[in-house]
Design a binder for these strands. Structure first.
Length: 896
RNA sequence: GGGGCCUUAGCUCAGCUGGCUAGAGCGCUACGUUGACAUCGUAGAGGUCACUGGUUCGAGUCCAGUAGGCCCCACCA
């Protein structure tokens, strides 16, 4: 509690401010989230997708970590040794960029500092800001095993990275070579295929004439979207079976602007149908051309520097120009020579650096690669034989497709921040040393060695996360107890970057699929459906939300809005509208408990309801609770968190608060004697306690707070370790009670309905007559008469055999078959009543005729399952019965 | 060029293996200070479940096609 209010003076409004932090502190003090390997009999493990160290929490984190916490808390309450491994990622490029930007404010570049000092500087940054996001997760209530917090660049994980590199190298799965990679000219590093995001963009296709060297006035026409790369052309290719052009194979072309003489070659790659059928071949700047070049042994002319300016390999006129500047210049010059035949608008996809958005340059470069095919085979198998499951399932297709078509992974980065590549080159001989420990000298000749200057792709450490965090490559007890983990929850966009690669690494190095279930949640979007991003300024700060509405309200809203596999929309301009649902629900819960506290005693809380003489409504709410608990459990087991939220919400608000609390008030006051009070008290306490449990995974703070407030409990108590649900303590189902209470609800609703139809003053209490109520409904109506009268604003409720005729009033026939009659002489207007009844008759007639049609169709009766037919017959009977009563009623009005 | 998803009340979406007299929250309208809750209560209006065809006793739910929107993958210059 924020203030000094005691149990009996809880404020009418729930204010999470000041209550959440102390609760979290209590959990931490008791070591509530830690699981020791030695005592983990039945572990349930999630490894957090490590956020970037420099990141600040955004709603995507909010959603993902709420999901994980719900799962962890659910399993913890069920008695599993639930362990959630937290940590952060060093995020190579992203972090280096952040620190470089910071340096830039001082007018410095990393080169001014030099490598060593720069890396020190990044570490300082990490030490200063690195724990921010971890602290923020705590504010959200995340129950991670904080003692196990890891960082992808810490000592242990670095050892794992090195071990993996060496093993793969020794196995021949890591190699170094000159290939076309994606180069970011701003970050000045190579990128993997996954790190180059392809976006459709409107570009131009330029058709350019290349004169034949030996025939004046004859040309071949090539088409390109990157004209500047022509400076590096070393051939022109046609398809070997291209009837139109193949006679030119072997001829020589004069490469304009450059003056190089290049051959016309034949290669299968060329599509004879596209354009003129000629392709310019630039082996150093295009992956296809590289392949063609390799097949034909063409020279590779790299015309670009690292920063994408034109290099010394190109004619002087273009040297030093930026690639886009060079493009313009090349076109102008070609234009001047009359060699530009045509310029076409052309939509094509252009790769961009996933960190800075700069257009990447496919470029020949000497890099390190991982051979992926051999790793993909077992990873694919694991999915196909069901050891790995995706939720929603459709992502399995995506996974399968990527795995089947996986290409080698470029893992070297020309950065300073990251795991240094464990490779040394001898200065004296050709020896390459790949080692677990830093070598002092060349093993072959004793010469001086020099370490490769590059670092590894960030994902080269992330892909080891599920086992490196547990101590691998050491054979630790943690690894023994907690690997493989169980569930992985993440965003679909890192399926390839991370998830797929973790599966590969897990199988290759730790001998098992790293997790059995992969949960891919949706994207958080703004009110216009746009992705939330810094640049659009449409993000929502989870901390602000927690501040204003409480972590529980945020968590509930997120879970409730995110149906499995669907995106969710939140309005950054109207947080109140976005998080109202959760806040209001928390308030509702608060007040329901507050009400209970006014009546419940310690004995009630300790009692077992079935020890008492339960009344129908008690048995009803116990049955409803039990059904809800089962459904919620099932939903959580199936990762349908949204259903779990929805189900508890409807139960707590729509059944427990709206009906049970209302009906039980009188009994709690003792108006019906101690026996009745005690049964009500025991039931109320039991159900209250029950749904606090069901909601604890989603709303841990308020449920814990309320739980500890129940009579006889103290802050020493906790829901953290469950048990999950007490529903199985007793056999609680009660079909008779359920149909009885729904009959009762119908009566109340009908009365309210009629009152509203006739505009009866809410404060006016009216007498009501009920006839033909089924026995169980009659019983519960009799039992709960007081509550019923209050709920329907009635002065009396009389049960009769049949409704008196000839008396003016409003009439309704219920689904249970009961008739409700409000004698309202002077208020009820005959015409209106007749119209009302007439339209109800018409509605029922429609339903009845549908029902009859079905039942008269022998195919339906013969082929539909018997229970469906039976249900249909019941429906028909009910429609007929209700209709006949209404028709009779109509007749009593006489004809117009 | 492949692959996937979406189209259900004014808005945001549920509706998983076909049986629905199609739901929720918000919004809207009317009414309400009945001692848990106005962050509330009661009632109401609002839907040819995008369209066309098929399978089926039965389709919002399955299949095919059409239209619109979104996403992922892809070396066609």
């Amino acid at each position: 509690m924020a203030d000094e209010t005691t149990r009996h003076e809880l404020s009418a409004r729930f204010d999470p401010t000041g209550t959440e932090a102390p609760i979290y502190a209590r959990w931490m003090e008791r070591g509530g989230f830690h699981v020791d390997a030695a005592e983990a009999a039945e572990p349930y493990v999630i490894a957090i997708p490590p956020p970037n160290v420099t990141a600040a929490l955004h709603m995507g984190h909010g959603l993902n970590n709420t999901i994980q916490d719900v799962l962890i808390r659910f399993q913890r309450m069920r008695g599993r040794d639930a362990m959630w491994i937290p940590g952060t990622d060093h995020a190579g490029i992203a972090t280096q960029n952040v620190v470089e930007r910071d340096l830039a404010k001082e007018g410095l570049t990393r080169h001014d500092l030099g490598r060593e000092r720069f890396v020190e500087r990044v570490w300082e940054w990490v030490d200063r800001y690195g724990s921010t996001i971890i602290d923020q997760l705590k504010v959200m209530g995340c129950s991670c095993d904080w003692e196990r917090t890891r960082f992808t660049l810490d000592e242990g994980l670095s050892q794992a990275v090195r071990e993996v590199f060496v093993r793969l190298y020794e196995k021949g799965l890591i190699y170094r070579g000159n290939y076309i990679i994606n180069w970011c000219p701003r970050c000045l590093t190579a990128l993997s295929n996954e790190e180059a995001e392809h976006h459709e963009s409107q570009g131009r296709l330029y058709h350019i004439r290349y004169p034949l060297a030996d025939a004046e006035g004859e040309y071949v026409v090539v088409a390109t979207t990157r004209p500047e790369t022509m400076l590096g052309d070393t051939a022109v290719a046609v398809h070997p079976e291209d009837e139109r052009n193949r006679h030119l194979v072997g001829r020589i072309v004069d490469l304009p602007l450059v003056g190089r003489r290049i051959p016309v070659i034949a290669d299968e790659f060329v599509d004879p149908e596209f354009g003129s059928g000629f392709v310019k071949v630039t082996p150093a700047h295009d992956p296809n051309d590289f392949e063609i070049g390799s097949r034909h042994d063409l020279p590779r002319v790299d015309i670009m520097n690292d920063d994408a300016t034109i290099s010394e390999e190109a004619p002087e006129a273009y040297r030093g120009l930026d690639r886009f500047e060079a493009r313009k210049r090349v076109l102008e010059d070609l234009e001047a020579l009359g060699l530009v035949l045509e310029v076409e608008e052309h939509e094509h996809s252009v790769g961009q650096c996933y960190r800075c958005g700069t257009v990447v340059e496919p470029r020949l470069s000497l890099q390190w690669f991982v051979r992926m095919k051999p790793l993909a085979v077992p990873a694919l198998e694991a999915y196909r034989d069901g050891r790995l499951r995706f939720h929603p399932e459709r992502f399995g297709n995506t996974y399968e497709h990527w795995m089947t078509n996986v290409r080698d992974w470029c893992i070297s980065r020309q950065l300073w921040w990251g795991h240094r590549i464990p490779v040394w080159y001898c200065r004296e001989c050709d020896e390459i040393i790949v080692a677990r420990d830093d070598p002092d000298e060349c093993g072959a000749c004793g010469g001086m060695v020099e370490q490769d200057p590059d670092v590894l792709d960030t994902w080269f450490s992330s892909w080891l996360w599920p086992f490196s965090t547990l101590g691998w490559p050491e054979d630790t007890p943690d690894l023994e107890s907690f690997y493989p983990t169980h569930t992985l929850s993440t965003a679909p966009e890192i399926l390839f970057f991370w998830v797929a690669r973790m599966v590969m690494a897990g199988l290759e190095f730790a001998g098992a699929v790293p997790f059995t279930d992969v949960l891919l949640h949706g994207t958080v979007r703004d009110a216009q459906g746009r992705r939330m991003s810094k640049s659009l300024g449409n993000g929502i700060d989870p901390l602000e939300v927690v501040d204003r509405f409480g972590a529980d309200a945020m968590r509930f809203t997120l879970v409730n809005s995110a149906a499995l596999g669907t995106d969710l929309q939140l309005d950054h301009e109207d947080l109140d509208a976005s998080f109202r649902v959760g806040r209001n629900f928390a308030n509702k819960m608060w007040n329901a408990v507050r009400f209970g506290l006014g009546y419940l005693t310690e004995d009630d809380v300790r009692a077992v309801p079935t020890d008492f003489r339960l009344e129908l409504t008690d048995r009803w709410i116990l049955a409803r609770y039990s059904a809800t608990a089962a459904a919620v459990t099932d939903a959580l087991e199936r990762f349908r968190l949204h259903d779990a939220a929805e189900l508890t919400y409807q139960f707590v608000w729509g059944e427990f608060c709206d009906w049970y609390l209302e009906l039980v008030k009188i009994r709690l006051r003792g108006d019906r004697g101690e026996e009745s009070r005690a049964a009500a008290g025991a039931t109320l306490a039991f159900v209250l306690d029950g749904w606090l449990r069901l909601l604890h995974p989603i709303m841990p703070f308020i449920t814990e707070e309320m739980y500890c407030h129940l009579p006889g409990r103290t802050d020493e108590d906790s829901l953290l370790h469950g048990p999950w649900t007490a529903a199985d303590r007793d056999q609680l189902s009660a079909a008779d009670a359920e149909s009885a209470v729904s009959g009762l609800q119908e009566v109340v609703v009908a009365v309210r309905n009629l009152r509203s139809d006739y505009g009866i003053d809410p404060s006016r209490r009216i007498g009501v007559i009920v006839a033909r109520a089924p026995a169980e409904v009659a019983a519960v109506v009799a039992d709960e008469l007081d509550g019923l009268l209050r709920l329907g604003g009635m002065s009396s409720l009389e049960m009769v055999d049949s409704i008196p005729t000839g008396e003016p009033g409003a009439h309704a026939v219920l689904r249970s078959g009961a008739e409700v009659f409000l004698p309202l002489s002077g208020i009820v207007d005959i015409d209106k009543e007749r119209d009302r009844i007439q339209s109800e008759i018409e509605r029922l007639e429609g339903l009845l005729s549908g029902s009859r049609r079905r039942l008269e169709d022998s195919r339906f009766v013969d082929q539909a399952p018997p229970e469906v037919v039976e249900r249909e017959q019941e429906k028909k009977r009910s429609f007929e019965e209700r209709l006949s009563l209404l028709v009779e009623k109509r007749a009593s009005f006489g004809s117009e």
